[in-house]
Amino acid sequence: MSIVREFCFTDMFKFNRLAWDPFIEDYNLSFFVTKMLQFPMLSQAVLAPNEQLMGYLLGESDKAAAGDHQLYGHVSVLAVDSEYRRLGVGSKLLERFHQLMEQQQKWYVSLYVRMNNRSAMRLYESLGYVKYSWLPNFYPDDHGYSLRLPLATDVAGKTLQGQQFIIKFYFIIMHVMLLIRAVLKFVLRH
């Protein structure tokens, strides 16, 4: 049960409950402002009947001229208040964004997620997102994945072709990385 509208600047004075979610990055003001100014129609907020902010999504899309290049949309932030979880707020926001991207005939939608954010992963996978690559130390305290959702334009599933094999072996890679880091530290210290 919700009100859907464009995310507006003054919402930032009221999104504290969402900003305190440990999985939500603390983006600075310029992040929000540039996204909102550049892609005004792609940011949305969902409000509860008492006008509390339930969740919001900031999106972007590349505006480059077509060609062989695969145009895509990107979900920059998706946040849902913990009191309003499991009500379909997140999927509603994403579905609307996918619709817009379909309208603009993009090839796929991409986003990044923390490796530990299991409930978010569940949501994305239920909507058809696929792990595209593994991003070691992408977050200050966690590794991340890049996920992709092919859209209708991408009939042959081309956008998933570059999918990196390391996803399957990420543990090996991670351990190698850790080892290298330890060695480097050791070398630097001596």
Partner: peptide, 11 residues
Amino acid sequence: TFSKMEEFMNF
């Protein structure tokens, strides 16, 4: 971004 100008100035 004409739709956001006024809003941004107020903000």
